[in-house]
Design a protein around this nucleic acid. Structure first.
Length: 745
DNA sequence: AGCACGCCGACT
DNA sequence: GTCGGCGTGCTC
């Protein structure tokens, strides 16, 4: 059972408030709590507090009993509907420290997104103003009628104060069945599917939901409107909170309930190596176990699509009487009501993307991180969201809120799985099917495609099966290796693969650089080449040789989906169903220069095997590579045992922590910021790489410094320090992005 | 001397 | 985020 919550009410007269101004320049400030507010102010409360005489919004982050001899201002008011839980505040404070992101920015991501921060409450209107006391008015309206100076005066004198509003409800288009004669739909299967689905909803159904349920396009619906079988109408957007519908389907969850029960009953962090096909049932079992103890479950999935799939599955898997809601960016305005339901405790299961990781839940019982190693679980630094992997937030939340945390993946990230983390493991579940494996040794061949590969494609095509060809991700840093012997250019100091930056080979760890040379150091061959077969090239070459159209599936391109042979990036091949899967260039995966590239290679190969029904063919010049061998056997523990010591000796997470500082600006200013400000200020135990030029995207050159330490908080402190220094230089100075423990360097 | 402008630090 | 203080540099 989770521990009882500590008393959240603040007894002290002074509290520390983090104003919601995202800058490194304003630390949390102390304010007095006036008597009439003591009942309402607690850790997590959203309050109005003055800064330079202006009322601002902030979150109470702690009591402050020993607040020096300061002449403190009073907290002006408490904003209802917005407060966070004490536990979420604690996790936010930790996340701010861990990521070097201002606390205000982290707190914002725990508040409902789409919050209208430009709303003001009319406290005491001047005579003649067209507003009533208590009315909510937009800032723009106030400015227009009062003028800039008049508005500021109104703020200063306390006639208005900020009062953020939850996003207003929008409207949704609904389909309603019309009375009367049904049209003849014998030759219109799509329309028929729509009608059958719609008959289950006598009161109508939102268009988007009906279309996805019936698997139909808008065109089919339009036909039905024309035939007067249905009509469309706008209705106020309803909260996307769904009742569960499962009846007597408990049998499907039974194989999972024992493990799920352990997570919920014992708490703590768990990994469960489970194939993707079972995630919905595993999550449902956890949610069911939590709901039996009257607790809520937070499910975190990497993308919107995965969220929606899980919501759909959970509706049917969980017994009726529970509620499930999705939460992701695309839901826009309707997120407000989900936020509210989660916070007040009326929602049983919330399934969301990383934007939901910090959402306050009244009685959090379990957190599930679905597809744990997926990079999409982490926001890119500099974009919306806190640049930290959801798994790290979930672990911390579980600890603070006394909730069980379950990470699901057939191959958890090693930074999670490392035994030093003392994370418990549930009995792994084997994939239902493992294909026959064929490894083609490409040593001594200059060809891209072996005859075995081409035979396999032809066989697949002739027997009517689908063939999936895994190509590498596009635009990733490549390395250089010898096509004769398979030897790779490595850093003489670190023995890690060198990455290509223009005509330079650069070590991602120590910034050692050398020029590319055309000859192999090992065998003298001149067949030194860039690693990496791009998806487009694989597609055109294969199509030419096979004399057969070949499809292409990547994040940006979807072409020829009906083809028998399809080249795709790992994600799209893993999600598909294939008779035969081919990895034509395993080496570019195994030889990647990044710290996680071997781990990623393992996942791509393991995942490729998992998505092949009959056969997996892999071309390589390193047939004995430990990661390749372990992946093709589906042996994750063997891989972890081999790879973890490598991570340790290379000084990568979880054994050491990195902060990647990316500066943008003229060389001189960047050098000054790094060499005279940052480097002398580094704590003992934090080492810095040299300042290296980095691929520039805009007008200004981009530079990168890596900080490394065994102590995670030391690198993030250094990162925050750099951010503060650069913030002081203002617009004229360089810009910096801090990425603590990036998934990739 | 008097004023515009920009940088810097304080604000609790 | 917003303001005021202060230095610089230019003008009357």
């Amino acid at each position: 059972m989770p521990p009882l919550p500590r008393s959240a009410f603040v007894t002290s007269r002074v509290v520390r408030v983090c104003l919601l101004i995202s800058t490194h320049a304003i630390p949390p400030l102390s304010y007095c709590v006036p008597d009439h507010l003591t009942e309402n102010v607690r850790v997590g409360s959203a309050v109005v507090a003055p800064l330079s005489g202006y009322p601002r919004l902030g979150i109470v982050i702690s009591p402050d009993d020993d607040a020096g001899e300061y002449d403190l201002e009073d907290v002006k008011n408490v904003v209802g509907d917005l407060s966070l839980s004490q536990e979420v505040v604690e996790v936010c404070c930790w996340a701010s420290e861990a990521t070097a992101v201002p606390l205000a920015a982290v707190l914002r991501s725990a508040l409902p997104p789409g919050l209208r921060m430009d709303r003001y409450r009319m406290l005491s209107p001047s005579p003649g103003w067209p507003w009533e006391r208590g009315e909510i008015v937009a800032r723009a309206t106030l400015r227009k009628l009062l003028g800039e100076a008049g508005f500021k005066m109104a703020e200063r004198t306390g006639r208005v104060e900020p009062s953020p509003a939850l996003p207003e409800r929008g409207t949704t288009e609904w389909v309603v069945l019309k009375d009367g004669e049904k049209p003849d739909l014998r030759r219109a299967p799509r329309q028929r599917a729509l009608m059958t689905a719609l008959e289950r909803y006598p009161d109508g159904c939102p268009v988007w939901s009906l279309l996805s349920e019936a698997g139909a396009k808008r065109a089919a619906l339009r036909q039905l409107v024309r035939r007067a079988a249905v009509r469309l109408e706008k209705r106020p957007e309803s909260a996307p909170i769904f009742e569960t519908l499962g009846e007597g389907r408990g049998a499907e969850l039974r194989p999972f309930s024992r493990s799920a029960g352990r997570v919920v009953d014992l708490g703590g962090t768990w990994v469960w190596r489970t194939p993707a096909a079972e995630w919905s049932r595993a999550v449902a079992a956890v949610a069911l176990a939590a709901s039996e103890g009257e607790e809520q479950t937070l499910v975190l999935a990497p993308e919107r699509k995965a969220v929606e799939g899980l919501v759909r599955d959970l509706r049917w898997l969980l017994p009726s009487g529970l509620s499930v809601a999705p939460y992701h960016g695309a839901l826009r305005r309707s997120r407000g009501s989900v936020f509210e339901a989660a916070r007040e405790g009326s929602l049983d299961v919330l399934v969301g993307t990383r934007t939901a990781a910090l959402l306050p839940l009244a009685r959090l019982g379990a957190v599930c991180v679905v597809d744990e190693p997926n990079d999409a679980h982490r926001a890119e630094p500099g974009f919306e969201g806190v640049p930290i992997h959801v798994r790290d937030l979930a672990l911390r939340r579980g600890e603070v809120e006394g909730a069980g945390v379950l990470c699901l993946s057939p191959f958890p990230s090693l930074r999670l799985y490392a035994p030093e983390n003392r994370i418990r493991e549930l009995p792994a579940r084997a994939p239902g099917n493992w294909p026959a494996i064929r490894v083609v040794d490409m040593r001594g061949t200059g060809a891209t495609f072996s005859s075995a590969l081409l035979d396999e494609c032809r066989r697949g095509v002739s027997t009517g099966g689908r063939v999936g060809v895994v190509a590498n991700r596009l635009g990733h840093a490549t390395t250089v290796y010898c096509k004769g012997c398979g030897a790779q250019r490595t850093c003489p100091r670190c023995d890690l693969p060198l990455a290509v930056h223009g005509d330079q080979l650069v070590c991602g760890r120590c910034s050692y650089g050398m020029r590319t040379s055309g000859r192999c150091d090992e065998c003298g061959s001149e067949r030194v080449d860039f690693v990496g077969l791009t998806a487009e090239r694989a597609r055109t070459d294969l199509a030419r040789i096979l004399g057969e159209p070949v499809g292409l599936l990547t994040a940006n391109v979807r072409e020829g989906e009906e083809c028998r042979v399809i080249v795709g990036t790992p994600r799209f091949i893993h999600d598909g169903e294939w008779e035969i899967v081919i990895v034509p260039d395993a080496d570019s995966l195994l030889l990647g220069s990044g710290m996680g590239s071997v781990e990623r290679a393992f996942r791509v190969l393991h995942g490729a095997a998992g998505s092949a029904r009959k056969r997996l063919l892999v071309q390589t010049r390193m047939p004995d590579h430990y990661a390749l061998r372990a992946a093709l056997r589906g042996d994750y523990p063997a891989f972890a045992t081999a790879e973890l010591p490598r991570l340790r000796s290379a000084g990568y997470p979880p054994y050491a922590h990195l902060a990647a500082l990316t500066f943008e600006g003229p060389e001189e200013s960047v050098r000054r910021a790094v060499e005279s400000d940052l480097l002398p200020a580094l704590e003992a135990g934090v080492e810095a790489s040299e300042l290296t030029p980095f691929a520039a995207s805009g007008a200004d050159p981009v530079w990168r410094v890596l900080l490394r330490s065994a102590d995670r908080s030391a690198v993030s402190r250094a990162g925050a320090f750099a951010a503060r220094q650069v913030a002081k230089l203002g617009k004229s100075g360089p810009r910096v992005r801090v990425d603590v423990d990036p998934e990739e360097v």
